[in-house]
Write a protein that binds this DNA or RNA. Structure first.
Ligand SMILES: [Mn+2]
Ligand SMILES: [Mn+2]
Ligand SMILES: [Mn+2]
Ligand SMILES: [Mn+2]
Lengths: 216, 216
DNA sequence: CCAATGTATTAGGTAAGCCTAATTATACAA
DNA sequence: TTGTATAATTAGGCTTACCTAATACATTGG
């Protein structure tokens, strides 16, 4: 029932991540995320469906239990790889996503265990996203985008969008990191910026960036 | 001039290693080492020749300068990966070859640098083989197989054959590790065993094993 | 010198993953 | 309702990297 290629892993991982924002995932969204043509994705989705890894309805693509299980394994390897890269090899958090995206397909279950063990079974990746345990379990926190906070609300950053290195650099530069407390001073109208207070400093933050930061 | 796939890397790596024992490498030997059919290898060798990565003569296959350069890069990544696995993640030396064989194709130049740096630029892999530096340079020692020693000769183990986990376990068990001093007490005739002395203990060692241990 | 053996290549084929161009289905606004 | 935009699929092709079966080439013992 296994028989996974790296590409299948990559598709399942993408579907898993996109599901968090938009439940049945559209093929076009998936194609965009994977940087592939729509027909390529269409075709592969058909294969995944035949292998019972996804269910393909009119509304879009959903992972089956089996597909979800594999996706979470890949996500675990991805996030453990990121931790290895930052915590042990000294990479910065904006440099690890692409590297991890290759490593995740080259890592054996034994290596996965060793990394987890060497790092003391970390609960999250450097960007604050949960690392599923061996059984695919993790604590999921109720979060909302920083961009939805009202003036004078205070919150703690849980995680940030990890796929844009430039944005990660910018956020690190402002101290917008997981577990950091932010206070919104002011929300400019008409989709304007948020004035936020982070560890003593005050910044004007565009909505685009603010929406990529999840807080609790 | 680059344009390498993981498979091309793997072929070049194999040719590089086989060259050390048998200079122009035969396609059949290459096929055996890569665990592929002879025609598959024949065909790929043709492609490598077209890319000027190998020279294919009647006697066999040789790496060109370009092919050699790439092969050494792969070997560097392989051996650094092994060191990462043993020194940082706690693997035993018999567990790392296959893992490294996958990692070597997934590691970026940046990660290669970081591993080397984190480990203090190691000169050899856990099995004693040299790790080429960024320019492909390394010190090559004049070695001979332990099986060629005469009675009462003493020597230091430089490296051991790394691709047979069972044999590696056996050697580790007897303390036959790189940098260890061995003395041959006796050489049984007719291809019989060697009686060797290692750190106070005496063992009878088959020729097969002894030939896979290189000493100086 | 010839048969037997071993080595290498040709011929023909498959599967995975991708692509572009063309077509069809859906949606929704005028 | 009908035209236009968006989303999805079909059709047809390509490349990479593998395979088996058959054939060609080389070596060598009898
Ligand atoms: Mn990935
Ligand atoms: Mn991450
Ligand atoms: Mn390899
Ligand atoms: Mn080694």
């Amino acid at each position: 029932m296994e028989a996974d290629t790296p590409r299948i892993e990559e598709y399942l991982e993408s579907i898993y991540k996109l599901q968090q924002e938009q439940h049945p995932v559209s093929t076009s969204r998936l194609a965009e995320h994977l940087k592939l043509s729509a027909p390529s994705v269409s075709e592969m989705v058909k294969k995944l469906a035949k292998k019972d890894l996804v269910k393909h309805t009119e509304k879009g693509v959903c992972l089956t239990d089996e597909g979800n299980k594999i996706a979470k394994k890949v996500v675990r390897r991805h996030r453990l790889s990121e931790r290895l890269l930052t915590d042990i090899l000294g990479f910065k958090w904006d440099e690890v996503h692409d590297e991890a995206c290759r490593l995740e397909h080259a890592i054996s279950p034994e290596m996965e265990d060793r990394i987890a063990q060497s790092l003391g079974n970390p609960k999250t990746c450097p960007h604050g996203h949960p690392i599923p345990d061996k059984d695919g379990l993790f604590e999921k926190e109720k979060v909302r985008p920083l961009s939805e906070l009202k003036a004078n609300e205070k919150a703690i950053i849980v995680n940030v969008f990890e796929e844009d290195p430039k944005m990660l650099q910018y956020m690190a530069c402002l101290g917008l990191l997981p577990n950091v407390c932010v206070r919104v001073e002011e929300v400019a109208p008409f989709g304007g910026p948020l004035i936020v207070c982070v560890s003593g400093s005050r910044y004007a933050l565009g909505r685009e960036v603010a929406s990529k930061i999840k807080v609790k």
